[in-house]
């Protein structure tokens, strides 16, 4: 069977590209139809433990959405305030690169996760694969690093901001509940969240981070629209995903039927080789023109 370097055969390459095209379409449709209201994202961000975060309606939705897209079953493995780690066992994307060894391969998964976080949750940042079965690891793992200001803006609501203001104005922790007309339990919970986010220190005093947030973050409130969460209509999202992937399926079929072209060696310009030999693009062009004239 003919090989395309380490890609594999033409048939394997076309098949992998067909699957990737389908995934691209599905991710695009999923992200376009899965905007999450800020209140749900906030619940997820405020979770104290990974188990709690993994059980939120939002993460359950993420898990279901990515299964339907075709990116595999996700498990939340870490929930620091600005960093979330996700693991995927039996990652279907990794299987698209059977000829790659000792390298991470699942860029499409990392970028899809980040696209969802940025566009649907309003949490920009960066996601990268930190472990991959194709690199010899037991499973594929992804690390999401979120932009801190965006996290603070979403995680902390108006009541949290009132607490920060009250403490900056000299209110004692004990008086917060009464002053802000909330239960003691709620006040304690909110104070613990503010401590977790390093807005308050162990003694409930404002930290340097709290001060920075107060200066820059509070002045840039985000607009919060209230609308039903996307998991209320999963059938509609699934329909959009299915419709979007029909083109990709058609592509895979027609691509298989594309004829193999015989390219005349004399018509080929190896761009990498020519660029190395040439000091300028003009020289490269001149070489091509001279070669053409010689041929004619």
């Amino acid at each position: 069977m003919e090989k395309i370097n380490e890609f594999g055969s033409f048939a394997e390459t076309i098949s992998a590209l067909g699957t990737l095209t389908k995934l691209e379409s599905a991710v695009d449709a999923a992200v376009k139809n899965s905007k999450v209201p800020a209140r749900e994202t906030r619940k997820f961000l405020k979770c104290m433990t990974v188990e709690e975060a993994g059980n939120t309606a939002l993460f359950q939705f993420i898990r279901e959405l990515f299964v339907r897209v075709g990116l595999g079953q996700m498990k939340l493995t870490r929930n620091d305030i600005f960093r979330y780690d996700i693991a995927i066992n039996e990652n279907p994307v990794a299987k698209l690169y059977p000829n790659v060894t000792n390298k991470k391969t699942c860029y499409i998964t990392a970028e899809s996760i980040m696209e969802f976080f940025a566009k649907d949750l309003g949490l920009p940042g960066n996601c990268e694969e930190t472990a991959c079965v194709n690199a010899g690891d037991d499973r594929c793992e992804f690390s999401i690093s979120l932009q801190p200001l965006a996290v603070y803006q979403l995680a902390l609501d108006a009541s949290d901001k009132e607490i920060i203001m009250a403490i900056m104005d000299g209110s004692t922790v004990q008086s917060i509940a009464t002053k802000l007309d909330m239960s003691d339990e709620e006040a304690q919970y909110r104070l613990s969240v503010l401590k977790r986010y390093h807005i308050l220190d162990e003694n409930f005093a404002i930290t340097e981070i709290g001060d920075t947030y107060h200066k820059y973050g509070e002045g840039m409130p985000i607009q919060e629209d209230d609308f039903p969460p996307p998991w209320k209509d999963m059938a509609e999202i699934s329909g959009a995903i299915s419709a979007s992937t029909s083109f990709a399926e058609a592509f895979t079929e027609t691509a298989k039927e594309e004829p193999l072209w015989d390219v005349n060696e004399d018509d080929i310009v190896n761009l990498a080789d020519e660029a190395k030999k040439s000091t300028s693009f003009a020289e490269l062009l001149s070489k091509q023109i001279k070669n053409k004239e010689k041929d004619d």
Partner: peptide
């Protein structure tokens, strides 16, 4: 590639994105 930038515009975004994701693991 060394010394050259090649810009490619296609008809379908998903096909170019798929090609990119297919090639990225081969790029160190």
């Amino acid at each position: 590639i060394p010394q050259l930038d090649i810009m490619i515009s296609g008809e379908r975004a998903e096909k170019l994105l798929a090609l990119r994701h297919f090639l990225l693991p081969y790029i160190s």
